[in-house]
Amino acid sequence: MDFISILSIFVLACFVGYFVVWSVTPALHTPLMSVTNAISSVIVVGALIAAASTGSASAKWLGLVAVALASVNIFGGFAVTQRMLAMYKKKER
């Protein structure tokens, strides 16, 4: 992919983000923060590339540490979001 197509994806995604986030109900702003936290750990992709690579031992170890940190976030972020969302209940009638 060249720089312009990447930039296009980025700009369009910003617009999507803008509209999607305004539609989030304020009652769910805390779960919004924890789930955005979890998904921003998609940075694990970069960490995996580094950890899987050969050629530089230090890059590999930095990658492995990054994989561990991002994993805390991925598992923790989704789990805590799920725990919160399970608490939101309607009036039982």
Binding site: M1, A13, G17, S40, V42
Partner: peptide
């Protein structure tokens, strides 16, 4: 050059 990361980054950034 990873679109998943770019889309996510843009979403989280605007959020």
């Amino acid at each position: 050059h990873n679109s998943a990361m770019i889309i996510t980054g843009a979403l989280v950034g605007s959020s």
